[in-house]
Design a protein around this nucleic acid. Structure first.
Length: 644
RNA sequence: GCCCUCAUAGCUCAGUCGGUAGAGCGCAUCCAUGGUAAGGAUGAGGUCAUCGGUUCGAUUCCGAUCGCGGGCUCCA
């Protein structure tokens, strides 16, 4: 028989008959390896152990410690779950069951829904299937046979998937069988169900078939699987820890903000401490904009619908707007700041010599968001965008974009943010503007990212209809992504409002407009910031920078003096003068996550000092008030994000 | 908007197989005047989310609404 050369990770090469399987190679190398093996990487592509190697290739035998192996394990867990569901609830139809980051899910069409009790029953059945240790076999079948078998069983969703594969020119599809169960699947999978070790079903959720809200609502079960129980437990522990950083929980505990049923969902009330935090962010924001040639503007919260008809919002954004009717006139609560900035720009002509014009505003907007999408501070109906609109010439576009990217990255860095991902969204199917403009703008965005060596992924067709954009998405405690900073080029509004400038030829030219935010919105950014620091904010933005704790009644006056002195220098200070033991006051201040506690009693009063205790550093001993003031001032001025 | 879950004191939660409710923390008052993560006592505080239905009787069972949470969809 003809032989092929198989090269291995250690550099060695073995000869094997053509068509030998990955599993056979593994067995030949080591029975122990073969027993643990899940799949093989053939020239980098993952395949089952049963896959025949037909040409010279580089092979890596993989178990669940490598990403491909773990993914196969999770995928098999999804199949075992589906098998269990069919056993426990016969007649349930299968939709799709892929792996996702950290786990897997499977969508089912079942009469009625799954309850938490059902999950336990399904889990128990899954353990049985694991114990039964079925071999998992791949079977390649012609499309029409697959269709016949699936439709015989009434698997309408699977049938649809195969039809789609056929429409894409596939002649055969692969089925994976384990015991009485089989499923349409590309694979690869574990060799046997008995190899699934540590798994857990997590929760049930609704999901539309194919993500289309006009199609049936299915029941999705989420689960996860790991190489062993300790890794699974560790994952679950980390999830619990993340939940403790939840900004909604901390917002309540730290008295930062609240949401009220009687006022409406998605509307934020900032308490004094939340407002202090936000103001600290805003003060920094304003000064950074002033430094970069932005001009601060303020525009009204409502405007007549005429304006929104001109801008196109009345047509394109109608479902998201709030309407007010007064004296037979219709007003709209602003969902965006752009039209207002354009009105300001257009109050006079602009020479090319003064371009670019950069207007910025902390503009509060209101958007009707569907009830199911609201989420703490991260998705709300009323929010303040840290907005700006740049009007520039075509030649200036790239420079402006680069400037904004640098600005956004600088802002994130200033707040110690490193959990984010960058996306470039290109032209969607429905769009306005010329090919030339789109190309120019998209490459300007791309070149700006490349010139800064920023890693990004492309979202093809995900741009807005008026232009391409760059999104920087922030991660929350649970790893979910939320759009923060965004830079959007707009070809539409300048046309609609005839936004222009006078060129060196004395003629009018169309200005290009860039919408951008460098934080996102104050709400979303604050929410992410709370989770980033688990409420223990850096000194420069902490709502309370120092808390003065008096030992006894006799020291109340001195404690007040200390607090007043610091407050008069612009520091945010609180006092705790209650008749409580010092240990109690310290405990509370610590739970409130105040960066510094100043303990004042007999000693300090006589010596004019304060005893300082830092949030992280603990007891720092006593120092003069002046020394402490300098320390605080240096923390604030350096805007250090390190804990104290 | 859709699917599922949940809703009891300011907060975190028990509880009631249908007979109008409890704890801890917090708060108030009093005692204690205390030196680096919880001193003690007493007390106030609830239309058990809202509106309907079933029932002799509903916080409990059923339905609707509002809202929270997990997803899906959406996100100019």
């Amino acid at each position: 028989m003809e032989s092929i050369r198989v090269s291995l990770p250690d550099g060695s090469v073995i000869e094997a008959p053509r068509g030998t399987t990955i599993g056979a190679v593994a067995t030949r190398l080591s029975p122990r390896l073969a027993a643990r093996a899940i799949l093989g990487l053939v020239d980098g592509a993952a395949h089952d152990l049963s896959y025949p190697i037909t040409a010279d290739a580089a092979i890596v035998i993989a178990d669940e410690t490598c990403p491909e192996g773990l993914e196969a394990m999770r995928h098999t867990a999804a199949h075992i779950m589906a098998q269990a569901v069919l056993r426990v609830f016969p007649g349930t139809k299968l939709a799709i069951g892929p792996t996702i980051e950290n786990g897997f899910y499977y969508d089912f069409d079942k009469q009625g829904s799954f309850t938490p009790d059902d999950l336990e029953r399904i889990e128990a059945e899954m353990r049985k299937i694991v114990k039964e240790d079925f071999p998992i076999a791949r079977e390649e079948v012609p499309v029409d046979e697959a269709l016949r078998r699936l439709s015989d069983e009434g698997e309408v969703y699977k049938t649809e998937l195969v039809e789609e594969l056929a429409a894409h020119g596939e002649q055969t599809v692969s089925l994976y069988r384990q015991g009485e169960f089989y499923d349409l699947c590309r694979g690869p999978h574990l060799p046997r169900t008995g190899m699934l070790r540590a798994f857990k079903l997590l929760n049930v959720a609704g999901a539309y078939w194919r993500g289309d809200e006009n199609r049936p609502m299915l029941s999705r079960i989420y689960g996860t699987a790991f190489a062993n129980k300790s890794q699974l437990d560790e994952y679950l522990r980390l999830q619990e820890e993340a939940a403790r950083r939840d900004h909604r929980k901390l917002g309540k505990e730290l008295d930062l903000f609240s949401i009220h049923e009687e006022a409406g969902a998605g509307l934020i009330f900032y308490h004094p401490k939340g407002a202090a935090l936000r103001s600290a962010i805003e003060d920094f924001w304003r000064s950074e904009h002033a430094r970069r040639g932005y001009e601060y503007v303020i525009t009204p919260h409502i405007a007549e619908s005429t304006l929104w008809t001109m801008s196109g919002h009345n047509d394109y954004y109608r479902e998201n707007m709030y309407f007010l009717s007064i004296d037979e006139k219709e007003y709209i609560l602003k969902p965006m700041n752009c039209p207002g900035h354009i009105l300001i720009y257009k109050t006079r002509t602009h020479s090319y010599r003064e371009m670019p014009v950069r207007y910025c505003e902390l503009g509060t907007v209101y958007r009707y968001e569907r009830s199911g999408v609201l989420h703490g501070l991260l998705r709300v109906r009323g929010f303040t965008q840290d907005d700006a609109h740049l009007f520039c010439t075509p030649e200036q576009l790239k420079g402006e974009i680069t400037g904004v990217i640098d600005f956004a990255v600088y802002m994130l860095k200033s707040f110690g943010f490193n959990e984010y991902e960058i996306f470039l969204s290109t032209r969607p199917e429905k769009s306005v503007g010329s090919d030339e403009n789109w190309e120019r703008a998209t490459s300007a965005l791309r070149e700006a990212l490349d010139s800064r060596d920023l890693a990004y992924s492309v979202d093809p067709g995900e741009g807005v209809f008026y232009g391409p954009k760059i999104d920087i998405k922030l991660k929350d405690a649970l790893g979910r992504l939320w759009q923060g900073p965004t830079i959007q080029v707009d070809f539409n509004l300048p046309e609609r409002f005839d936004v222009n400038y006078i060129g060196d030829d004395g003629e009018k030219h169309r200005a290009i407009m860039i919408h951008r935010v460098v934080l996102g919105s104050m709400e979303r950014f604050t929410g992410c910031l709370i989770e980033q620091y688990a409420g223990a904010f850096p000194v420069w933005i902490a709502p309370v920078q120092a808390k003065v704790l008096s030992i006894g009644e006799k020291h109340v006056g001195y404690a007040r003096e200390v607090a007043d002195e610091l407050a008069s220098r612009g520091f945010r200070v609180e006092t705790d003068l209650r008749n409580e033991k010092i240990g109690h006051k310290i405990r509370e201040a610590q739970l409130e996550k105040a960066p510094y506690m100043l303990i004042v009693g007999e000693k300090e009063m006589k010596a004019g000092t304060v005893s300082v205790r830092a949030r992280k550093g603990g007891d720092l001993g006593s120092m003069s008030l002046g020394q402490f003031r300098d320390r605080l001032a240096s923390d604030v001025e350096s805007r250090s994000c390190a804990d104290v």
